[in-house]
Nucleic acid binder design. Structure first.
Length: 274
DNA sequence: TCCCAGGCAAGGC
DNA sequence: GCCTTGCATGGG
């Protein structure tokens, strides 16, 4: 296992990064010590006031995964004067937007619909332990072929609820040739349109996939928390996801995705939710 | 008992 | 096109 050490910076905090709601497969060893899993890989991350220590057999993968080449101070300087951003940074300046696997992110955020993070994590873990490869001390996220072995009853049995049939339909579509990698080269609006063709993927889930897996930053996923924030900002609590999202992207610009995550996570911290 | 959670699909208009 | 309703499940 390789080791990679870098100096601790304000814009990398492993707790913020993993607990901000963009990823569901991680385990907390202690306050500053986590393990994160992605597809069939894992990475240990330990941080203190001076250093961050990463350990993995797939270090190049995780350097990219954690977006280490991006200058977050520069991003912050571009949005810090926008509404609510500066206050939010006081809670979670260490957030970074991960570069997650397309398939895993699609499946994960279909499960996220009208659900809470604790349950989302539990359902995804059940998917891995039941369908994924045994890697020794953990289970990999199943491949699309492995997932094709699961039927609606399986997903119901692990608590997926009415999302069970969405999962079956989407897995089938992907196995029959729906190309997730081609989406990378599309414009944000085309990519969004394409993702929404998948069962269980609407505008909000599509925006999460675009942000957390495709690195599209001109999106602003609108969920129940963002609706509350939008009401604080504008006094309005009506409107479709598309209209609110469009408003917010106009307001926050090409760094909307980062702003969204700072606002979303700090809101949840302040309301003491898990 | 009702409300809520990183909403979506289907049907009505 | 927009608006309403039904939907599984577990926690507060």
């Amino acid at each position: 296992m390789d080791k990679y050490i870098f100096n601790k910076i304000d814009t990398f905090d492993i707790r913020d990064i993993l607990e901000c709601g963009q990823v569901f497969r991680y385990s907390k060893q202690s306050d500053n010590d986590y393990i994160v899993y992605s597809i069939d890989k894992k990475c240990l991350i330990e941080q203190n006031s001076k250093k961050v220590i990463m350990q993995s057999s797939n270090m190049d993968y995780f350097k990219n995964y954690f977006d280490l080449d991006t200058d977050y101070e520069n991003i912050i300087s571009n949005i810090k004067d926008k509404p609510l951003v500066n206050r939010s940074l006081g809670y979670c300046k260490g957030v970074r937007i991960l570069k997650q696997d397309h398939f895993e992110t699609v499946i994960s955020f279909i499960i996220s619909a009208n659900n809470n993070i604790k349950r989302i994590r539990k359902i995804i873990e059940s998917i891995c332990t039941n369908l994924g490869e045994n890697m020794g001390d953990y289970y990999a996220f199943p491949t699309r072929e492995q997932m094709a072995n699961a039927d609606e009853n399986f997903f119901l049995s692990i608590g997926a609820g009415y999302r069970a049939k969405y999962l079956v339909n989407t897995i089938k579509k992907i196995n029959e040739g729906f190309d997730l990698s081609s989406i990378r080269n599309m414009s944000t609006s085309k990519a969004r349109e394409k993702l929404i063709q998948l069962s269980g993927v609407g505008p909000k889930v599509a925006d999460c996939i675009l942000l957390f897996s495709y690195g599209k930053m001109d999106v602003f996923p609108v969920d129940t928390w963002v609706r509350k924030i939008y009401k604080e900002l504008t006094g309005r609590d009506n409107g479709s996801i598309d209209s609110i999202s469009k408003d917010l992207v106009e307001m926050y610009g090409n760094y909307s995705g980062y702003a969204q995550q700072y606002l979303f996570y700090s809101k949840r911290i302040r309301e003491q939710k898990t």
